[in-house]
Computed example of a mutant assay.
Amino acid sequence: MNNHTIEAPRVAGTSTNAFVVTLTDAEKHQLRGALEVLLASGFDRKSIGYVDAVHRSAIPIKALSERIFYSASPYAVIRNLPVETLATDWKVGPAPLTSAVLVGLTRALGLHHFGYPEEKKGAILQDVHPIAGWENTLSNAGRVHFNLHVESPFLPRAARPEAAALMAINNDARTATRVAVVADINARLPQKTLEVLRQPLFSYGQDDSFEINGYALETPRSPFLKTIDGYEESRCAIFTNTHTPEAGKALTEWLSAAEAEAVDVVLEPGDMLVFNNYRCIHGRGAVEGKRWLQRVYGSRDVHLADHRDLVSVWRAVGEIGIDHSF
């Protein structure tokens, strides 16, 4: 594991090549004021007003968009955004200010939000925190170390989020979110290993956070790596199955390189991490203490979503008109 950690002092230009934007307190208060006026009539996830407020703020949306969709390091951290001030005895519940920032910024990037009816009961804005009874699960509700992965890799690419955003409301646990770029991981490995990973020698099972009535899904055999539109992508899953000894060895080498490449991002209240889910993998350390983040998925193309902005697992795996090979 490397020693790169993005935390205080919170400025851009670290050795991690991270793109970090930090609002001044005045810029934060300006955005808070604009959003609180809109929130006086209640939170509405689809309100265009939040997007307009973000566009009028100091957040460099054009630069962020270029970074997430078209750069070699497609992730960014935005610091010192407005969030709720929590009481000492806080409990997870509605957080309209945080939600408005999260959806406003991601929609400003051109993302259409969606969720899955089989995950978190169809929540699109998701609260990420330890849940009693789930402590040992490999999911966002657990407390154990959560391995590096992409979101929803057991589904075909068309049903996976193109990007995801995490925003901290509390992180007393000081748990780091980990992120690594697929192309940078690949650069650490010999061509022979990469050639194995590009062959259909792998299959993927669903994440623990999905509830599918006791069924166990496993994808058709497909590559672990693929180049799409000139960029390196991975189907890295928590539950990745290998089907030859050569594939198992190559996967072990890739995951070791991923651990060495990953950057630790310590999100303080008001900090947001946005990353390209096709071209980055992410995870987190063990959660030892209080931690509450909000999360949202999005893609620029969500044609599989229904009128509720939900993508059904069953529709995705049965859809004929999409590519199921990766």
Rank of each mutant, 00 (worst) to 15 (best):
H145R: 15
R315S: 12
L109P: 09
E261H: 02
G104C: 04
G33L: 03
L217Q: 02
W134S: 13
D44T: 04
A237G: 11
G270M: 11
F114E: 04
W90E: 06
E118V: 09
Y215P: 00
D323W: 11
S234T: 15
K121Y: 05
T137W: 08
P200D: 02
V83L: 02
A18G: 02
L102F: 03
H113N: 09
G230Y: 05
N171L: 02
S99K: 12
S15E: 09
T5V: 13
E151Q: 12
A173D: 04
G110H: 04
D208R: 08
N277K: 10
S71T: 14
A247W: 08
P96I: 00
H243A: 11
S299L: 12
F69M: 12
A95D: 04
L310I: 14
H113S: 11
P9M: 06
R284S: 01
T16K: 00
F275C: 06
V181Y: 08
L109S: 06
A26D: 03
L217G: 03
E119D: 08
G104W: 01
E268P: 01
S99F: 07
T22A: 01
T88Y: 02
L194Q: 09
L97R: 10
A316K: 13
F114N: 09
A316F: 09
A316P: 07
G248W: 12
P82F: 02
S256P: 00
R300T: 14
I61T: 14
A40T: 03
S15A: 14
V263P: 11
A180E: 00
Y50S: 13
P220K: 12
E253N: 13
S71M: 12
I68Y: 00
S139G: 14
F275S: 06
N80P: 05
P220A: 11
A18P: 00
G318Y: 03
S15H: 05
G133A: 09
V265S: 09
F275E: 03
T193K: 07
S139N: 14
A262L: 01
N2L: 01
V128W: 03
Y50T: 14
I169D: 03
I169C: 13
L81R: 13
V101M: 07
G13F: 08
S203E: 02
W90G: 03
Q30T: 03
I320N: 10
T14I: 04
Q126R: 15
I131N: 08
P156S: 05
E36R: 01
A237H: 07
S203N: 05
P94C: 10
V11M: 03
D52T: 06
E27N: 07
L105K: 11
E66W: 02
L138Q: 15
T175F: 03
L293A: 12
G13Q: 09
R56G: 07
F275Q: 08
A8E: 04
K28V: 01
P96R: 00
G93V: 12
P74V: 04
L255D: 06
D207Y: 10
L217A: 02
R300N: 04
V311N: 13
G289T: 11
A187G: 07
E27C: 08
